[in-house]
Design a protein around this nucleic acid. Sequence first.
DNA 1: GCGGACCCATGACACGTGTCACCGCCCACC
DNA 2: GGTGGGCGGTGACACGTGTCATGGGTCCGC
Lengths: 207, 207
Amino acid sequence: MSQDGEVIRVLLADDENLVRSAFAALLGLEDDLDVVAQASSGAEALAMARAHAPDVAVLDLQMPDRDGISVAGELTTVLPGCGVVIVTGHGRPGHLKRALEAGVRGFLPKTVGAAVLSDVVRTVHRGGRYVDPELAAEAISSGDSPLTPREADVLELAAGGAPVEEIAVRAHLSPGTVRNYLSAAAAKLGAPNRHAAVEAARRHGWI
Amino acid sequence: MSQDGEVIRVLLADDENLVRSAFAALLGLEDDLDVVAQASSGAEALAMARAHAPDVAVLDLQMPDRDGISVAGELTTVLPGCGVVIVTGHGRPGHLKRALEAGVRGFLPKTVGAAVLSDVVRTVHRGGRYVDPELAAEAISSGDSPLTPREADVLELAAGGAPVEEIAVRAHLSPGTVRNYLSAAAAKLGAPNRHAAVEAARRHGWI
DNA sequence: GCGGACCCATGACACGTGTCACCGCCCACC
DNA sequence: GGTGGGCGGTGACACGTGTCATGGGTCCGC
C-alpha cells in the first residue's frame, strides 16, 4: 500500500532487458524509490503487478505481446491505486491521447533527461500528472484522427505492404471496398498513395 | 591511457538521454568502470572521444546524424587504442557484418541481460571480441547481400513508399530502369512486390 | 420521419507497377 | 580478345491500384 514517508514501490516493464536493468539501476540510485518487480512483456507485467501491488508502474510503450497502453488500461482497473507511467522511444501524439484515456498519468519520450523519470514517478505517486510538454504541444496541434474506425483498420492491414486482395481477405471485405477505404483514408491524410498514408497515420499515432 | 589495474574509462553515446543516463548508472555500479564522457549524437561522440581519449566507446547503432557504425569506423582510425562496442535495439545480420568490418569488437542487442554489457566492455578493453551468439548465428545463416549496389540504392529509395517516378528523379535514372531494378531485387529476395522486398532487405540489414 | 454518418458493395476508367525481351556500354577476368 | 556481369535504357503487355459515381443497408440525432 502507498504510504507517505515510505519508499515508493516501483514495477518496471520493458522487453529490452538491458534497458530495463539500466532503468532499474537509475531508479535504484534514488533513496525514496524501490524497484520491487520487473517484467519483459505485457502479460508478465500484469502478473507481477497482481503479485507485488506496486505504487507506480513504469511501462514501455512497445512490447512484444501487447501494447503498453492496453496493459495500463487493465492495470488501472485491477489496481486502482497504482499510478502508471508510460515511457516510449517514439512519441506519437495519438499514443499520448490513447494513453491518457486508459488512465495513464505520466507519459515520457526516452529523450528526456535522467532526472525527469524519477521526478515523474514521484509526481504520479502523489496523484499528479506529467506529460512531456513537447509531446503535449504536438498532440494538441495534430488533433483527433480523421479516420473512421474501419478506415483505420484497413490502413493498418495495408501497413505491411500487402496487396489489396490479401487485405480484403483478412478484413472480410470485398477488394473494391478495401480500395475505397484506402482511397478515402489517403484523401483525408492528404497523401498521394496508401503508403504515404500509412506513413502519415503512423507519424500521428492514429494506427 | 589504458593501464591494467586501473579503471576502464568509458565513452557513452546514445541519442535517447534517458537510456544513456540509465546505461551510465548501470555501468557506474561497477567499480572498475568509469563513464568519463557522454554524447547524444555521432558527431558529438567523435568530439568527446578526441577530448577524453576513452578506453572503450559504447555506441548506439541508430543516432540522428550518422550511423553508429560510421562513427566507429572513424573512431578506430583516430583512436586506434579505443575499443568500440555497438548496442542496438534491432539486431540485423547485415549491421553486424558492416560493424565488424569497421573495426567494432563488441556487438549487442538491447535484449541481453544487464551483466553482459559491463562484461563485454571489459572483454573489449582487454583486446577481446564479443558478438551476441544469436545474432552471429543469424548473420552466418543469412549470408551476404545478393543485391548489386545499385539495386540496394533503388530499393532504399523505394522504402518510403515513393512512386517509381520520384525514385527515378532522385536516383537520376529512367523510370523503366527503376522498375527493372526493383523487379530484379524483388526476384532475388523472393518477394512478391517491392514493399515485401524492402521488408526482407531491412530484416537482413541489407539496406 | 428525415437527414447525415458510417458501413459494404459494384462497375468503369485511368494510371502506376511488375514482368519480360532485348538493346548498347563499360570493365574485369581468364 | 572473348566472355560475363553490372549498369542504363526502351517498348510492350498484364495486372494491381487510385479514383469516382452510385447503390443499399444500418444507426443516431434533431
